[in-house]
Structure formats: structure tokens, C-alpha cells
Write a protein that binds this DNA or RNA. Structure first.
Lengths: 194, 194
DNA sequence: CTGATGTTAGTACCAAGTGCTAATAGCGGG
DNA sequence: CCCGCTATTAGCACTTGGTACTAACATCAG
């Protein structure tokens, strides 16, 4: 038996946050109070009804769908590409890419943009990164747009290798330089790298 | 005025797929038929009612939430850490981390695990990567578990710098080696790197 | 003309609520 | 001991977006 109203309400809030799909009836059983009490509690806490809660979750997904997709495909948007020569992509740094602490973009996002651009310039999904050297020259903050330019600087076709240099800038200022040694996979060689 | 029933039903299906939040009434207006006809159509097409549809979308998000969250916090799960000394994390490679083409894990996921571990071993959200050298020794495939071990190998406290070496293995076989030159931010120095 | 197919209308019912009124329980103070 | 207050509970009418079912039409083909 929970005692104070306040205690129940904080627990209620937490419970709904953890599982938005719970009905008032289930909650009433959980807290051993009447359904009406749960309704009053929700009202005081300004927690919407089950169906509204679910809707919000669903709408959020729907919006996120576009946002989360890029993380697995090409990171950043390729705006120009010339296979085996060069490519350019842009990437807008948003709140979800930075450390909350200081709003600075996490390194792996810069790397991801550069690396996926290096893969793309080689030839779509058939290239692997073998080695890489990176320099993070300046911190990038949320709201900034990173322009990455990839150039193939060395080709060793007989070894299925090539080097790609990627320079990323924000407002014409270089923030990141990376060189990627790429391995171009052939049908036979799949899975045998290094 | 749509003619055949079949035409309407294919359009209906598409319409609901595009916007699962649409009610039968809205659909009845859209296709200029009665609400009952829409219901019959849904029945024949085995399309659930609005609330069920929304629920499915919401449940999907809920499950994805855990999956998408790590991308922004620590990549991989830290299983051991000794600040300024060493740290170990594991990362399970899933379908969403690999190239569809050949099931090989994309480089930036290996980098992300290693880099975030390097950041973590330094001291929570206060470190930035300045330089890095990577070697992708062997391809990692979906279903494999990557164990990353980070060790602080060099310290230059007066310059707020340190080097971290990360070795990632799958079944005791080294798949990735990375060295990270880290910069430890102080309150005053925020935003001025390199 | 009859029958199959498609469409519409209407009714009863359900879940998970809102919004409202009213009753009751428990306790604290005077 | 009663008064007043808060908290809780109960009950009813109503809402949305349906299901499940029955019945009436419409239309066209054979």
C-alpha cells in the first residue's frame, strides 16, 4: 500500500513513461486505487490518455524514420560524384550528433561522413577501408554544415587498392582531414582483406 | 470517381501505408464511398483499424529506441573501465551495421566503438579526438561480437594530451587497430583545439 | 427475370477514455 | 464531538473509431 498521493503520482508518472501502452485500468490495479483516482492523477500531472500517448510515440517514429535512415546508408548527402576521381558531400550537424556537454560534434560522425564518401567515390558498396589517418583540426558545433571533398590520390589497380583523401570544411575552414586506403573487392576476393 | 473495386482497394492500401493515421471517415471522403465500403475494403485487404495501426508504429519505435540510442551515446557496451588507464567495450554487429551487398560491417561502426571508448577512458565527455590512425585488418560480419580494448599509452598532462591505443578483436582475432591522440578539454579551453 | 457482386444504411456493442456530479472515508483542529 | 478539508470512489452521459452483423438496394450479366 503506497501512502501519500504525491508518492503515487511520481511512481505513476515513471510507470507511464516506461510503458506508455498501459491503460488506466492496469494502472489502477498496479497502484491499488480506483480507475477514477488514476484519471485524477493523470489530470493533475497533465498526462494524456493512452491513445494520445501512443499516437505521440507513433508520430515521433514517423518523423524519425527519415532522420535515422541516413545513419546506415550514406552519411551526409552526396552532391557531386565522379567515380574513381572525386566526390563531395554535405552533412548538417544536429543536436543528436554532438556531446551534450559542449555541443561539439562527436568524432565518429565526421569520420562516418568522410569514410562513406571515400567508399562511394571508389564504387558503391564494393570497397572496404583498410587503413586510415585522421586529423580533427577544429571542433564542429551543432547547426554547422560540413562539406567533405574526397579525391582519389593514388591508384594501384593491380593490388585492388587506392588512396582517397578527404578534406572537410565548415565555412571554408578546414575542420578535418582524413586519408583512406581503400581495397576494392572483387567477386572472388570477398571476405579476404589484409 | 474511381471505377473498379480493385482500383480503389490498391489506392486505399497505398493511402493507408503512406499515412497510417487516417480514419475510415477520412478515407470514405477521399474515395467518395461510404464508410462501410472502406471497412469492407480494409477487411478484404486485412488492414487493421486505425488504433491498431498506430500501435504497431509506436511499438516499432519503442523497440528501435534502444537500438538507435547507442548511436549517440557510447557505441558498444563498456564492460570494464579504469579511468586514464584502460577500458573494454563490446559491440554486437547487427544487420543494420553492415553493407547489404556483402554483410561486412561498415568502417565507421568500428571507428565509433573505438573512438567512443577512447573518449570514455579519458574522462567522460570532456575529451576530443585530435588525430587518429586506423587499420582495418579483417572484415567483420553481421552476428559477430567485437571486443575493443583501449589503453592509454602516452600522457602529456602539461599539453592536455594523451594517446590511446584501441585494439578490436573478434574471437581473439584482431580485426582493427586504432591510435587516438586525445585532447582533454578544460573549462577555459572549450572550443579551441588544434 | 434471376442471381451474383458491390454498395450503403442501420443497429448493437466495445475499449478507453472525458466531463461531470455526488457520495464517502479519514484526519486534524477547535 | 462535530466541522471542514482533502483524497478517493462511484456513477452516469457522452465521445471516437471502430467491430460484427443484418438488411436493403443497385447494377449488370447471363
Amino acid at each position: 500500500m503506497k501512502r501519500t498521493k504525491r508518492e503515487r503520482q511520481t511512481a505513476l508518472k515513471k510507470s507511464i513513461e516506461e510503458n506508455p501502452f498501459v491503460t488506466d485500468e492496469e494502472l489502477s490495479a498496479e497502484f491499488d486505487v480506483s480507475v477514477q483516482t488514476i484519471r485524477l492523477d493523470r489530470m493533475e500531472l497533465a498526462i494524456p490518455e493512452l491513445r494520445e500517448r501512443i499516437k505521440h510515440v507513433a508520430v515521433k517514429t514517423f518523423e524519425d524514420e527519415v532522420k535515422s535512415l541516413p545513419i546506415d546508408e550514406v552519411i551526409g548527402e552526396i552532391i557531386d560524384i565522379e567515380l574513381d576521381e572525386k566526390a563531395i558531400s554535405i552533412f548538417d550537424v544536429k543536436a543528436e550528433h554532438v556531446f551534450q556537454r559542449n555541443q561539439i560534434a562527436r568524432g565518429h560522425h565526421l569520420f562516418a561522413q568522410a569514410n562513406s564518401l571515400a567508399v562511394a567515390v571508389m564504387d558503391e558498396e564494393l570497397a572496404l577501408t583498410v587503413k586510415s589517418e585522421l586529423q580533427f583540426l577544429r571542433p564542429v558545433k551543432a547547426g554547422q554544415r560540413i562539406v567533405a571533398k574526397a579525391t582519389v590520390i593514388e591508384r594501384l589497380p593491380e593490388k585492388n587498392r587506392a588512396s582517397v583523401k578527404v578534406v572537410s570544411t565548415v565555412d571554408q575552414v578546414t575542420v578535418f582531414i582524413g586519408t583512406f586506403e581503400m581495397y576494392r573487392m572483387t567477386e572472388q576476393s570477398e571476405g579476404e582483406v589484409g
